[in-house]
Design a protein around this nucleic acid. Structure first.
Lengths: 361, 361
DNA sequence: CGCCTAATTGTAAACGTTTACTCTGCAGGC
DNA sequence: GCCTGCAGAGTAAACGTTTACAATTAGGCG
């Protein structure tokens, strides 16, 4: 009786699974009347197999609905065709634009993409190293430079051969020996600041990201450099953190507007913050650019439709994404440590719209 | 001589790889002086092993820098701890908000996330089925309902037991037997339209997504229903596609503004398009809400900082994400086909800001 | 007709885990 | 002192591929 019951159970289970069948290469081989090696060859090296055999096998594959077990393949080949992208926040339209480029290139090469956010996460360089070691992914794209990479399980020497490519930010000294694709952020920030200066602004404040993030560090450096060159003073409290978010930027903007020496122009380290800045200025009853000019950075797709449209620095996000991915592919394919470790600089451009004007006072 | 050379080569290779060592469980076992089974147990079932042995093994692990080969584990266990999220576009802030919720829940459970965009992709239901069959991922979250799922390798019966959960959109009939988490879009769109009507609008147009997308279909249905109930006529050309993008919506808006019977209010099927709509109206020299009122849908984070701030329908994106992920986890853990197949409805809410006012004319 | 070569297919090992099963000792009860 | 039971550790099989190598076949040429 018990036996019967079990049988019934088993049958039911099998019936349940009928549509997602568990056929391995073995059953295909059996049905086609060939060895498993031949089946494998039919799939991976069809040219090494007779037309006749190939058809037999093809028929068996269709018949059984066979599809190779990716897990077994990955295991055997030691490749997952997965690459990991580490970025601060997937919500930032700039990064999604870069992602678009990455994805385009990835699709060409047959890679899928695993996204890891550092924001709100305690992900450390160790985690990344661990992920690499565990071979879950074939390579890593770092869109968020991680400060303490140097102090890690990975020595400088080995880092140079790792399948890692850095994008979007001039690499800090820690990552200097990794290949990268990015604009010259320092120069771009200088250009932005100089444009404000050229318009006649002297009281120029900046909203950067946050201390711990390298993302906006270079932009801050460019701002400082430009101000210094123009012999303009950066007052205490003119350099304030905006957390890379709209709300953070609004808070920061409020502080700037309340400053005893209110700036006539605010340079935001990215457009996301510039949007918050813009809004907060209007909430305060002031106008842009009448009372305060606002300059952004990134040229995300919303910049153009702001009111007023945002003057900003344009980055070729799509191109960065594609190039980063292509370099990573090359690195993976050619084995680690093909000498290609230099930093590629792509051009940025100043996009002049209407959020910056000459100061009224 | 040749032997020497080879030796040297080998040594060099090993030196190259020194930091990303190739230690398997076997070498750990050897060093610790135990069997590989014991090492495995130390890692996965520490309670089944003597304190003494565990320490020995622990020491060997640290010494060698061993880390289990994830590929082998996945292969052996038949699980990847990867889930796939299929969505129309990762650039849409609404989806990134949902993603945030998904990610939060995923992290808790130890899952990583693979993102697949349907936009600009020819990904079909077949591809999804294939991905499932190939076991690359343990489960799938569909934020983009796919129309022709029914005609597929997967029968209705088997679909009911697949590790798939649908989010964000009331499921079409094809997917009716899959578990889902979403707002009642039809009802929400009705509410939005009714609000416009209540403000006194009679000439109300709508910008929906695109024919092929189910994403905005329900919203269109709600709009139609509300208009019908209020006995308002939808003129030819008042229902126009916006491609779910800013530029598409701008184009659509231009058409609406050029219409012989210009609408006094435009209901956009999502905020992204509402932003484009808003901008195009202003470009045309008209004001919002003075000349035309604009209503959005989703309440993305930019809605609030538009000028004027956007009146829209709020969806609990974060909650949707978390709930979808939790249900998927349960489905994966409990084996397929735990009876939990119903559609969960989460509440939406009308967010009144300033882009809608009474019609002037 | 037999041998050599090339083309095709088969055999079996290997990848690194996990785990069912077996074995070894040791403690405790009789 | 012997048997039982059990905890801890080992042995080996299995997962589904790929691939080096061996075996077979066929065909061409002397």
């Amino acid at each position: 009786m018990t036996g019967r019951l079990n049988d019934t159970d088993r049958q039911e289970e099998e019936a349940e699974a009928e549509d997602i069948p568990d056929v391995s290469i073995t059953v295909v081989a059996k049905i086609a009347g060939v060895s498993i090696a031949t089946v494998s060859r039919c799939i991976n090296n069809p040219e090494k197999v007779t037309e006749r055999t190939r058809l037999k096998v093809q028929k068996a594959i269709v018949e059984t609905g066979y599809s190779p077990n990716t897990l077994a393949q990955s295991f055997r080949r030691g490749r997952t065709n997965l690459i990991m992208v580490v970025l601060p926040s997937i919500g930032d339209p700039f990064f999604t634009a870069v992602m678009h480029g990455i994805r385009t290139a990835a699709r060409e090469k047959g890679y899928s993409i695993l996204i890891e956010e550092t924001q709100h996460t305690t992900m450390t360089a160790d985690d990344i190293g661990a992920l690499l070691v565990s071979r879950q992914t074939d390579g890593i794209i770092l869109l968020a430079s991680m400060s303490p990479f140097g102090t890690d399980i990975l020595s400088a020497k080995s880092r140079r051969r790792l399948p890692i490519v850095v994008g979007c930010e001039k690499v800090s000294s820690d990552l200097a020996d990794l290949p990268s694709v990015c604009i010259d952020s320092v120069d771009a920030a200088k250009e932005a600041t100089n444009y404000l200066i050229a318009q006649g602004h002297e009281r120029i404040a900046m909203i950067y990201g946050q201390e711990s993030s390298l993302l906006t560090k270079d932009r801050e450096l460019g701002y400082r450099a430009a101000m210094k060159t123009a012999e303009l003073k950066i007052r205490d409290g003119w350099l304030v953190a905006g957390q890379l978010s709209i709300s953070g930027a609004r808070q920061a903007t409020r502080e700037l507007l309340d400053h005893t020496e209110r700036p006539t122009a605010i340079f935001c380290a990215n457009d996301e913050m510039a949007i918050g800045c813009l809004h907060e200025i209007k909430v305060a009853g002031l106008t842009v650019p009448g009372d305060v000019s606002v300059m952004g950075f990134d040229d995300i797709r919303y910049a153009e439709v702001m009111d007023p449209p945002l003057t900003t620095i344009g980055q070729p996000a799509d191109e960065i994404g594609e190039r980063v991915m292509h370099r990573l592919c090359k690195r993976i394919e050619e084995g680690r440590g093909n000498g290609d470790n230099q930093a590629q600089i792509v051009p940025h451009k100043l996009v002049i719209r209407q959020s910056v004007a000459k100061p009224s006072s």
